[in-house]
């Protein structure tokens, strides 16, 4: 639809016309700002805690132990614009102190996009329970971790 509009605008005399191929779903999925009735509903972007501990591939189990605090997971990031590669569960702390995060992490955890509403996410968690929901942009950048109880509570308040 937007390529047609772009062509039509050009034919109407607009001199510099671009078509954003990814369009709205690409924009919203990457956590970029949007407006409208949907924007006011509780979504994963607002329910996610950005304070989840993060680690690099070269960190050790000892690093994880030192920095995990009260969390039951840490996320492993890599790359110049860090993306989520894996997760480390608190259970991994049983491993030898000198083992690298790369050896004890779980590769490619399921992630969800920031625009997903609590109302959409809650039934999914009821069908397939999980201890946490990892939220990343389409590009894989970490937004944070949301807890199921917070998602269910937000869904209930949104629907009431």
């Amino acid at each position: 639809m937007s390529p047609r509009a772009a062509w039509r605008l050009e034919s109407l005399g607009f001199g510099e016309v671009y078509d954003y191929v990814g369009s709205k779903m690409d924009w919203i999925g990457d956590g970029l700002p949007f407006e409208g009735t949907f924007a006011d509903r509780p979504r994963l972007s607002t329910l996610a805690d950005a304070g989840v501990p993060t680690f690099g591939l070269g960190d050790t189990v000892r690093d994880v132990r030192d920095r995990l605090g009260g969390w039951d997971l840490g996320l492993v990031l890599a790359g110049p614009q860090p993306v989520v590669l894996g997760l480390v569960r608190a259970e991994a702390l049983d491993a030898d102190d000198h083992r690298r995060v790369e050896e004890v992490m779980e590769d490619g955890p399921s992630t969800y996009r920031p625009h997903v509403s609590a109302e959409e996410m809650s039934p999914q968690l009821q069908d397939k329970p999980a201890p946490w929901v990892i939220v990343t942009t389409l590009s894989g950048h970490l937004v944070g971790v949301a807890r199921p109880e917070a998602i269910h509570a937000a869904a209930r308040s949104d629907g009431s």
């Binding site: 639809m1 937007s2 390529p3 509009a5 772009a6 605008l9 607009f14 510099e16 016309v17 671009y18 078509d19 954003y20 191929v21 990814g22 369009s23 709205k24 779903m25 690409d26 924009w27």
Partner: peptide, 10 residues
């Protein structure tokens, strides 16, 4: 001014 069109998805 430049114009950027978009719709729902790609």
């Amino acid at each position: 001014r430049a114009v950027i069109t978009y719709c729902y998805d790609s």
